[in-house]
Design a protein around this nucleic acid. Sequence first.
DNA 1: GAACGATACGGAGCGCTGTTCCGCTTTGTC
DNA 2: GACAAAGCGGAACAGCGCTCCGTATCGTTC
Lengths: 181, 181
Amino acid sequence: MPPRKRADAVRNEQTLLAAAAEVFVRSGVDAPIREIAAEAGVGMGTIYRHFPTRADLVVAVYRHQVEACASAGPSLLSTSDTPFDALRAWVDLFVDFLVTKHGLAGALQSDSSGFASLHAYFLDRLGPVCAELLEAAGIKDIQPYELMRGIGNLCIGRDDDPRYDPRRLISLLLDGLQVRL
Amino acid sequence: MPPRKRADAVRNEQTLLAAAAEVFVRSGVDAPIREIAAEAGVGMGTIYRHFPTRADLVVAVYRHQVEACASAGPSLLSTSDTPFDALRAWVDLFVDFLVTKHGLAGALQSDSSGFASLHAYFLDRLGPVCAELLEAAGIKDIQPYELMRGIGNLCIGRDDDPRYDPRRLISLLLDGLQVRL
DNA sequence: GAACGATACGGAGCGCTGTTCCGCTTTGTC
DNA sequence: GACAAAGCGGAACAGCGCTCCGTATCGTTC
C-alpha cells in the first residue's frame, strides 16, 4: 500500500481545490496556472505535483464542486430564512459549478468517455438534492431535471458577450417560480 | 472607393494563403504564426496586416481551398491517366481541405452563424465537382454528398491517436468503389 | 526533544507563444 | 529620377506552461 500522505499535502490539496474553483469562476477554466497558485498562496510546483495536467485539476474541481453543491443543499435549508432563499442560494452555487462543467469539455479534448460518466455522476448526485429543495419550497411547477437543465442551458455562451448575464435571467426564472407559489 | 492594392501586397496574400494551407495540414490550425510566416518567407507583421485575427486567416484559407478544390476537379480529369486516378487525387486535396474545415469551428469560437453559411457555400461549390468526377469514373454506387460526408466523418479525430490514419481508410473506401466498376 | 530520512514546497528560469511597433524597403506616380 | 504612400520585416515585449532543484517541513525513531 502507498504511504500515508503528509498533513500539509492534504491541506494544500484542499486549498488548491477551493482556490481553483474561485479562479475558474472569476477568469474561466483557461486561467493561468500562476493565477491559481497565487490565489491559493502556493507555488506552481505544488499544483503540478498534485494535478499533473490541467484536465486533472479541472476534473478534481468538478467532483469537489458536485460534492460541495450536494452537501450545501441540506445545510442551506436549515440556515436560510425561507426554503426559497435556500433554493436561490443553492442555484447560485450551481451556476458557479457550471462554469467548471462547461470548461471540462474543452479541457478533456478527446477523452469524452470519461466525460459521460462524470455527467452521470453529477445528475445522480445533484438531482435528489435539487428535488429536496424544490419540495421544501413547495414548488410543483417544475421538475428537478428540467430546472437544472434549463439553468445549464442559460449558462451556455456566458463569456461570448458581456451584455449577456445568465445570472440575471436565472434570477428572473426563479422569480417566476416564486410568483406561482 | 479604396485605392488599388499594391502588386507585392497581392502577391504576399496569395503566398500566405498557400503557405498557411500547407502548414495547417502539417501542424494543424493551431500552428504558431511564426511557422506560417517562415513557410511563406515573410515577416509576422505581414500576416497580421492581411489577417488581423487568426479566424480571418483560417476563413480565408478555407475559402481559398474550396476554390482550389473546385477548380482542380476538371483539370485533374484532363491530366490524369484515368478518371479514377483523378478522383483519387481530388479526394486527397479534399482531405487537406478538411483539416482546415475542422479547425474552423474552434477558430470561430462562438460566431457559428458565419460557419453555417460557409458550410453551405462549400456544399454548393464542391458537390457538383465531386459529381462530375464520379460520373467520369463511371461510379454509380455512391452519391456525391454521401461520399463527401463519409470522408469528412472519417477525418474526425484525426490527431487524437497517431494509430488512426484517415487517409488509409479513405483509400480503402476508394478501392471498394473501384472494385465495383 | 533531538536527530534524520522522506516528502513536499517554492519560484527562478527556460522555451515557446501572440502581438505590437517602427525603421527600412518597395511601389506607383508625377 | 524623385518623392510620398503603402507595405514589409523582425526585434522586442508580455504572458504562458512546465521543469528542476535547493530549501523547508513533516513524521518517525530513539
